[in-house]
């Protein structure tokens, strides 16, 4: 079966706008918000969400990136991963409301690593989780607060998120996992 596009560029934009509104609503404004993305594409999404929230609220919102490589529990099972830099606002994250952003939520293990990584750089007041795609198959008791799209999938299927900043084009697709990466 050829890869099937499930979100076009405009769908992604609408999902991120809705997530931004939902974050503002649940936080009752932009106070103390820090939007942290998980590399690579989570960082891009976090920057977009922070920009959207500051456009909507008229106040600047901090964003950054949180590398979880060194906190993973599968380092000896997979090929060596090169870590990425962690960037947090200079003021730190103590007492802030951190929204973690990732592109696809799957087993929940990346988020578990992210919570450990977060604990090493400070103590936020609240941590929330936003994801563009929730594909199910959780292996840990982790649940997203803000979801772009729920995409029920079989475990063998593969989901590709492509964004302008990292890939040059923009869509989300799903395929049976037999065809390799989309052209």
């Amino acid at each position: 079966m050829p890869p099937r596009v499930v979100l076009q560029q405009a769908d992604i934009a609408r999902a991120l706008t809705r997530i931004s509104h939902e974050i503002l609503e649940s936080n009752r404004g932009p106070d103390d918000l820090v939007i942290l993305g998980i590399p690579t594409r989570g960082v891009i999404l976090a920057e977009r969400i922070a920009r959207l929230i500051s456009d909507i609220s008229g106040r600047p919102v901090a964003s950054g990136s949180l590398d979880v490589t060194m906190y993973r529990d599968d380092l000896s099972r997979n090929p060596t991963r090169a870590p990425s830099p962690t960037r947090v606002p200079a003021a730190g994250i103590d007492g802030s409301v951190v929204v973690l952003v990732d592109d696809v939520l799957y087993s929940g293990r990346t988020i578990r690593s992210a919570l450990d990584a977060l604990g090493a750089i400070g103590r936020p007041r609240i941590v929330r989780l936003a994801t563009l795609i929730d594909r199910g198959h959780r292996e840990l008791p982790i649940r997203p607060d803000f979801v772009g799209k729920n995409l029920p999938s079989a475990q063998g299927e593969r989901i590709y998120v492509r964004l302008h900043e990292s890939d040059g084009d923009e869509f989300v697709s799903i395929d049976s996992g037999e065809n390799g990466a989309p052209k």
């Binding site: 380092l75 000896s76 099972r77 997979n78 090929p79 060596t80 991963r81 090169a82």
Partner: peptide, 11 residues
Amino acid sequence: LVLSGERGELS
């Protein structure tokens, strides 16, 4: 780098 991975290359 020596201890992580399946003793593979840096990806």
